[in-house]
């Protein structure tokens, strides 16, 4: 086992233990030992599946991801209000468009975060990503123009390095 993979193993153990302790609410020796056995079993299975790597636990994101989440939450609230307005105004207020957008991210992780953020904000859905072009379906042309403005793209790009 290399140093790199042991780092991900330790973080997996910490996360799983926190989930167990947070959810159980009982702190006697018997239940905690059950928890330890479960955690070890899950770590064993994860190693056999070979999913203990930077893809399942993107530690390199560090604290930047929280700032991004805060910003994303603000975006979600804004676009939700837009969509709710359109729901109550009726189908005449929407004019859906499909657009292909360039994305500047290099890594798979960056592309995934960008695509999922676009889907998570109501009003835009990622239909497909191929190489560095993504196909977006939006409820109106404004949301596409907002994405073309590229603020979200830049913020995700900043998460990468």
């Amino acid at each position: 086992m290399t140093i790199k993979s042991s780092r991900y193993t330790i973080s997996l153990i910490v996360v799983l233990s926190l989930i167990w302790i947070g959810n159980s609410g009982f702190y006697n020796a018997m239940l905690l030992s059950f928890g330890a056995v479960s955690v070890l079993f899950v770590v064993f299975v994860a190693h056999r599946l070979e999913i203990v790597d930077e893809e399942s636990q993107p530690l390199q994101l560090g604290r930047r991801i929280f700032a991004f989440w805060m910003w994303l939450l603000k975006e979600i609230v804004q676009s939700n209000i837009q969509v709710i307005k359109r729901i109550w105004l009726g189908p005449k207020s929407i004019s859906p468009v499909v657009m292909q957008l360039k994305m500047s991210q290099q890594t798979d992780m960056g592309k995934t975060i960008y695509g999922n953020s676009v889907t998570l904000t109501p009003g835009t859905v990622t239909l497909d990503i191929e190489d560095d072009v993504m196909t977006v379906y939006a409820l109106s042309y404004d949301s596409i123009q907002y994405l073309q403005g590229g603020e979200m793209d830049r913020r995700v790009k900043r998460l990468e390095d």
Binding site: N80, V83, I87, P91, I94, P96, P122, G123, V125
Partner: peptide, 19 residues
């Protein structure tokens, strides 16, 4: 129920899922 086709309905479902 108000939106006309499947793809636009997906946006309406997103409202519940997030906010």
């Amino acid at each position: 129920h108000r939106f006309p086709d499947f793809f636009s309905r997906m946006h309406a479902a997103g409202v519940t899922d997030t906010l």
